[in-house]
Amino acid sequence: MSDETRKKQDMTISHHEIKPGSMPPNASISRKLREFYDAVQEEGIPDRFLDLLEKLEEAERNTNSVKVK
């Protein structure tokens, strides 16, 4: 089952439909962790972090070019 299908199924089940003991004890925790992970995955990378990565790559290239000479 794909994540999208699972999300749609989770969204269609209301909290009133779930009876105590009908779901495994960790199902709620697992679902919340999956939702959190999906939300983090959808976030973009901040520009400041991208700038730092570019500076690091540039520094590594400069270090490698000095070693080659």
Rank of each mutant, 00 (worst) to 15 (best):
A59M: 09
M23W: 10
L33F: 15
R48Y: 09
D3F: 10
D51C: 08
Y37H: 14
L52I: 06
R34G: 09
M1R: 08
P20L: 02
Q9Y: 13
D10I: 13
Y37G: 12
K69C: 01
M1K: 06
N62M: 01
G21P: 04
V40R: 09
V68Q: 01
I45V: 09
L50F: 01
A27M: 11
E35T: 13
G21N: 07
R61A: 01
E57A: 02
E60N: 11
S2G: 04
Q41Y: 05
E43N: 07
E35R: 11
R31E: 13
S28T: 14
L56K: 12
V40M: 15
R6K: 11
H15N: 15
R31V: 11
Q41S: 00
E54H: 06
M11D: 09
K69D: 02
K67P: 00
S22A: 12
F49K: 03
M23S: 06
H16E: 13
V68H: 00
P20D: 01
T63N: 08
N64Q: 02
V66I: 13
E43P: 03
V66T: 03
D38N: 08
L50C: 04
E58A: 05
R6G: 03
K55Y: 07
K19M: 06
N62K: 00
T63R: 05
D3H: 07
E57M: 04
I29A: 15
R61Q: 02
S65H: 04
E35I: 14
E4F: 06
L52G: 12
P20C: 05
A39Q: 10
I18R: 03
E42P: 01
N64D: 02
G21Q: 02
H16F: 15
K32Q: 15
M23I: 11
D10C: 12
Q9D: 05
L50R: 04
R48Q: 09
T12K: 10
E17Y: 12
G21T: 12
K69Q: 02
T12G: 05
E58Y: 03
S14L: 09
